[in-house]
Simulated assay, not measured.
Amino acid sequence: MSRLFPHTAYAEDQPYYKTILTSHVLYRGFQTGSAIGIVVGLSRTLLGSVLTKSKPSPFKNGAVIFSTVQRSTGVGAVIGTCMLAVILPMHMMGKEEIEWKDRSWRLLENQGQMEVDDWSLPGTVAGAAIMAARSHSGDLRRWRPIVGGAGIGSLAGVVGYLVWRYGIWGGKRQETA
């Protein structure tokens, strides 16, 4: 996402600064909510099978686990995004234009942040596309699995980045000429 915006040499010249900061914060809210949703979905599935003997064990049916985790991830992603949509304006209220520009400029300057976006955005799109293709109806109630797939894909992209950067490259950056 960060590569979609122009990046100037100086923070005070940064265009689209509110769009850059807002999209970054909302996307991080999406990812954070997705991560919490995965934990909640796994906990709910596993604890539910232990606490109630009447339900079939989720270990016998992997689709039950995936479906619950996927829906929880979708709900968590929406809640995380909505929370940060409220928090960002509250946090930035009263800030001067240069503060918005500086924060957005620093996001674009941060190579680690750019790499995380490079890995997580394709994962988000792929996850949503796969789940949309699996959806057999145009029913609007099917948003949770699609958004959940996007959230899982996004987090899979972050894991891919971490493996690439810290597992394969040992945290070092390649020198580009």
Rank of each mutant, 00 (worst) to 15 (best):
M1L: 11
S2F: 13
F5L: 09
F5K: 08
F5V: 09
F5Q: 08
H7V: 12
H7I: 12
T8F: 05
T8P: 07
A11Q: 12
E12C: 11
E12Y: 13
D13H: 06
Q14G: 08
Q14F: 11
P15H: 04
K18W: 01
K18Y: 01
T19K: 14
I20Y: 07
I20V: 13
I20R: 02
L21E: 08
L21M: 11
T22P: 04
T22C: 09
T22Q: 06
S23K: 07
V25F: 07
R28V: 01
G29D: 05
G29W: 05
F30I: 06
A35W: 00
I38M: 14
V40P: 06
V40H: 02
S43W: 15
R44D: 08
T45G: 14
L46Y: 14
L47G: 05
V50F: 14
K55T: 08
K60I: 00
G62Y: 00
V64D: 06
V64S: 05
F66E: 05
F66G: 02
F66M: 06
S67F: 03
Q70K: 09
Q70H: 01
R71Y: 06
R71E: 12
G76T: 07
A77D: 01
V78E: 03
V78Q: 02
I79H: 00
A85K: 09
V86S: 10
I87Q: 12
I87H: 10
L88F: 10
P89F: 04
P89Q: 03
M90L: 11
H91E: 13
M92H: 02
G94N: 03
K95S: 14
E96H: 11
I98S: 10
E99C: 03
K101V: 03
D102G: 04
D102T: 15
W105N: 04
L107H: 11
L108M: 15
E109D: 15
M114L: 13
M114V: 14
V116Y: 12
D117V: 01
W119P: 06
W119S: 10
L121V: 13
P122K: 05
V125S: 01
A126L: 14
G127T: 02
G127W: 01
A128G: 12
A129R: 04
M131H: 14
M131T: 10
A132G: 05
A133S: 13
A133W: 07
A133P: 06
R134C: 11
R134G: 07
D139W: 02
D139T: 02
L140I: 09
R141T: 08
R142S: 10
R144K: 09
P145V: 05
I146S: 01
V147S: 04
V147G: 03
G149K: 04
G149A: 10
A150H: 01
I152Q: 01
G153P: 07
L155C: 09
A156V: 14
A156L: 13
G157Q: 07
V158R: 02
G160F: 05
G160C: 09
V163W: 15
W164Q: 07
W164A: 15
R165P: 07
G167T: 02
I168A: 11
W169P: 00
G170R: 05
K172V: 00
Q174D: 05
A177M: 03
